[in-house]
Amino acid sequence: MMRYTIHRLLLAVITFLGITLVTFSVIQLAPGDPIAMQVSPELGLEMSQHTYETLRAHWGLDQPISTQYVRWLKRLLTLDFGRSISDHRPVWDKIAERLPWTIALSVLAMGISLLISIPTGVYSAVRKGRTFDTAVGTLLFALYSVPGYVTAIVLITAVAHIPIDWLPISGVRSEGFADLSLSGRVVDLAKHFLLITICFTYPLLAFQSRFVRSNMLEAIGQDYIRTARAKGLDERSVMLRHGLRNTLIPIVTLMGLMLPSVLSGSAILEVMFQWPGIGRLMFNAISQRDYFTVMGISSIVAVVVLLGTLLTDLAYAWVDPRVRYGG
C-alpha cells in the first residue's frame, strides 16, 4: 500500500508538471502580450514604455522561458497568481471565495447521484430485461442525452411562467438573508441550491446508473457468484455481498474520471443560475480578458482535479485487495 501510494503520488507530480507546462506554454505561445492586454486600447488608455517595462520585469517576462517557468511554479506553490485587472484584488482571494460554492455543488451532485445510481443500477441489473429495467433504462438514456444547460433553461422558463414564487432561479441568497434565523437561512440556501443541483446531478446520475448496471451485470456473470449460490446464500446476499462489492471498484474509478467533466459543466450552469462559483468567475475573467485570473483558475482547477484523481486512486487501492497487496 505504501509503495502504491508513493507511486501514485509521483505520477500525480509528473502529471501536475505536465499540466502546468501545457498551461504555461499556452500563455507563452498565445498571440498577445499579457501586459499589453491589461490595458484596453479601445478605452483610449495608453501605457508608457516605462510602466510597460516595469510590469514586464515585475512578472519576470523579460527572463528566459525556463526561468519564467520555474518562477511561475514557485508562485503557484505560494498561491500567488497576481492581481485581477478588473478589480485589482489578488486572484487567489477571488478564487478562494468562489471555489467552495463550486466544490459544494460538485460534491452534492456526485453524492446524490451515487446514492441513487447504485441502487437503481443494481436493481436494473438484477431484474435485467424486466419492466423496471427497460423503463428506467430508456428514461436514463433519454436523460443522458439532454445536456444540463438545456434542462436549466427549460426549468428557468418553467419556473418563471408557472409561476412558483418561492423558488429562486438565480444567486445563492435571497435579499435580507442576513435577517433570517438559522433555519430560515438553511431553507433559503436549500431553495437556491435546488434547481442548479438538479441540473448538475441528473446527467451524472444517468451515466452512473448505466455504468453500475453494466458492471453489475458483468459481476453477476462471474463464476464466484455461482460459488456463492452453491454455498446456499440467498439471492440478496449473493447480489449485495458478492456482486455489489465487485461492482464498487469500477465505480470508484469512475468518480475520479468524472470530476473534470463535472467541473467543466459548471461554467455554463453557473452563468445561467448566476452562481458565484469558479465557472462563472472563469467566464467573467475571459469576458474581461482578465489574463491572470484565467491562468490562476486553470491552475487551481488542474490541482483540484489531480487531487481528486489521487484520492480516487487511493480509494481504489483501498477497496481492491489485488491492488492493495500488489497483484
Binding site: 462471474q222 463464476d223 464466484y224 455461482r226 460459488t227 456463492a228 452453491a230 458478492h242 462489492r245 465487485n246 471498484i249 477497496v319 481492491d320 485487495p321 489485488r322
Partner: peptide
C-alpha cells in the same frame, strides 16, 4: 468448481 481463480471472489 473448475476454475479456482474465477470461482473465488477476488475482493
Amino acid at each position: 468448481f473448475q476454475e479456482p481463480m474465477s470461482a473465488l471472489n477476488p475482493v
